[in-house]
Amino acid sequence: MPDMKVNEKHVTVGKQFHDDPRMTMRNVNVFYGEKQAIHDVSIDIGKNEVMAMIGPSGCGKSTFLRSLNRMNDTVEGCRVEGEICMDGESLYNTKLDVVELRARVGMVFQKPNPFPKSIYENVAYGAKIHGLADSRIDLDEIVENSLNKAGLWKEVKDRLHQPGTGLSGGQQQRLCIARAIAVTPEVILMDEPCSALDPIATARIEELIKELSENFTIAIVTHSMQQAARVSDRTAYFHLGQLIEVNPTEQVFTMPEHELTEGYITGRFG
């Protein structure tokens, strides 16, 4: 049984940095009030890379993901320290606007959360608030493109004006992805996007993630190791708020460097 205690002076093993990073995180600490949820995490996410974050529940991977587009701002008492940069610009610097940041770093949530509006309105929402379309035709085009990219267009093109909440779970999640794509982000964060879905819908989303990785940088938190293995280029293993290991996915699942990682992927705890 590996030692599960938090190591005060911990060093992340593996290849945590990237040559062509889109996002760089250095010495990130996240606190909820007095409680520290993330301890001193440093990692890069490369351009057009799919980064998977795995780890036992409560290890802070979702918290970490949410600090990448400052969604933690909405949580009362949450504090982020350290440096998180995107294309060399610091996110927690007052200069970078949070609206702009979130338009550039999209997010897909654990449970599909379409707005109680029509499918069309759901996808058009981001474009409308940001003023990305000059005309109705532009907007139609954005909606169609995004739904196409999310692989949903064929299924919903005849019922664009029906409520988005009427779709199946998998379709709803793809709708949320389409909604995120519509504002042309550079990075998409996905917080366990398949945990509420059945296996077939999950497979469809995983396929979609692979397709999207051609155009987007993706960070995905997942509790399914198989999923991480199937979709990601690199995998980061979190344990009790610490980043234990980052390595190319194949390596993590075949010969992990750290004993905690090994313990987790061989199912000794989780």
Partner: peptide, 15 residues
């Protein structure tokens, strides 16, 4: 109104 609705909108960059 569920918090997830707000999160969905904020994550798209809405004020």
């Amino acid at each position: 109104v569920p918090q997830s609705m707000r999160d969905g909108s904020l994550a798209l960059g809405a004020t």
